[in-house]
Design a protein around this nucleic acid. Structure first.
Lengths: 245, 245
DNA sequence: TCTCGGGTGGCACTCGGTGTCTTATAGTGA
DNA sequence: TCACTATAAGACACCGAGTGCCACCCGAGA
């Protein structure tokens, strides 16, 4: 057991710092809370804070670095038999699971993050790294190496890369959407199930999109008949008419 | 003429600060460059730098705040006759146009941004604001108000919102993809055309998916039939339809 | 000439973040 | 039980980003 005690203590320090930071941020705001106060509340020295967190913002977030490494490891070790979108879905579920593991903290964190621009940016940056990892994985699975040969501007490979990036963005967007809804709801209910359902809905719709298809044509006549429902937005009717003539 | 001289000078100061910052960042790195050095190179006081830019990172970016305001204004003032995805496409083209307006600076900025995490995060945060604006616009166009009635978890409206967010993410992702390729290529060629083409490719595939299903109030059989002649101006048809419901 | 207002310079101050040295503590081998 | 070592933590000094405040300059009127 390689230093079990050490690690345990380290974890405790980190957790008490996180708890102290979260409470202080909630009570008196992010900018109004100094690192000194957090350290004091956690009973450690100021310098120790920065041994556990790179920047002040990191204090209240889950360990995105570690999570990202896990995600990448999961994707890299995924069997070539499992469809790429399934692997990515599993990865997204892994992420949401860490939030679900401690709903109360997650909700508190959400409350703070919602109000502090600096924290929002930090979170956005974190999720964008997941998105990057997903896109890279999809490219790899499609036989497109990461190097991205400097000038494939309009090539078919570029098109596929773009679509993979869009898929990755869709997955991350869906994850964030479901997660935010869960957090707004106070962290009650099965996020994992919700995300699983939402993702399969989105990806099932997107999968056929990977194969192009054309639009249906219409008969032509001198008179144009448009049948639509009341409540249909004008622009849609306009579009239909434009397409028909 | 409300202080023309003042504004002109102010613009000049800002531009010279940007130029100085970009050159210094390229020459000796972002972290290794102090605001003092930038200010000195631009021939102004350190304090003046922070009158033009909120943070050091802002110095080399285009004015995203102003651009975002323009985008929102464009979307808000878009005719109800133009399809939402077209309006969003136009907005994305507006953004890429500002980069295309000064390719050399854009490429330099890209070189720096690529290497400095702090700058990357800043840029990601900026683009995410565009994404937000796009999604909000699509929701509005679909009759979904911004308030987001606290618990629509699984409702059809929630599904619509999610899809709009995915579309917005797809647009921004495509924008970034095309822009990055252009920047990597040294800023040569017609980005606007590339983006326009890429977006129409992506959105043409995504549009049927967006309209697919999960449409609230879909089973109303309140049908509207419009009969008209080909060549009738759209606005007249629109008028007729509006009057009929 | 006086005044008013916006842009600027100068200055002091707080605080986030880092480098570095020292200290405490837990595990290891004799 | 006693050093020995590695790792975490404390103490301290330092840099630089960002802010508040006051004084200054200068063009536009009254």
């Amino acid at each position: 057991m390689e230093g079990r005690g050490h690690v345990a203590v380290r974890r405790d320090v980190r957790r008490s710092l996180t708890a102290a930071a979260l409470d202080l941020f909630l009570a008196q705001g992010f900018d109004e809370t100094t690192v000194d106060q957090i350290a004091e509340a956690a009973g450690v020295a100021r310098r120790t804070f920065f041994r556990h967190f790179r920047v002040k913002e990191d204090a209240i977030f889950p360990d995105h670095d570690a999570m990202l490494r896990e995600i990448v490891a999961h994707l890299d070790s995924a069997s070539p038999l499992v469809p790429p979108l399934t692997a990515v879905t599993e990865a997204a579920l892994m992420v949401v699971d860490t939030y679900a593991a401690d709903p109360e903290t997650s909700v508190k964190r959400y409350e703070v993050t919602r109000r502090v621009p600096s924290l929002r940016e930090h979170e956005i940056a974190a999720t964008s790294r997941y998105q990057r990892a997903f896109a890279a994985f999809l490219n790899e699975r499609d036989g497109l190496g990461t190097p991205e040969g400097l000038d494939e501007r309009d090539g078919a490979a570029g098109q596929r890369r773009l679509r993979h990036e869009v898929i990755a963005a869709a997955v991350v967007t869906t994850h964030n959407h479901v997660l935010r809804a869960w957090l707004r709801g106070g962290g009650t209910g099965d996020v994992r199930a919700h995300l699983s359902e939402a993702l399969s809905g989105i990806l099932a719709g997107l999968e056929p999109w990977l194969d192009d298809r054309a639009r249906p044509g219409d008969d032509e006549d001198d008179v144009l008949v448009v049948v639509t429902r009341r409540g249909t937005p004008l622009w849609r009717i306009a579009q239909e008419i434009e397409a028909a003539r």
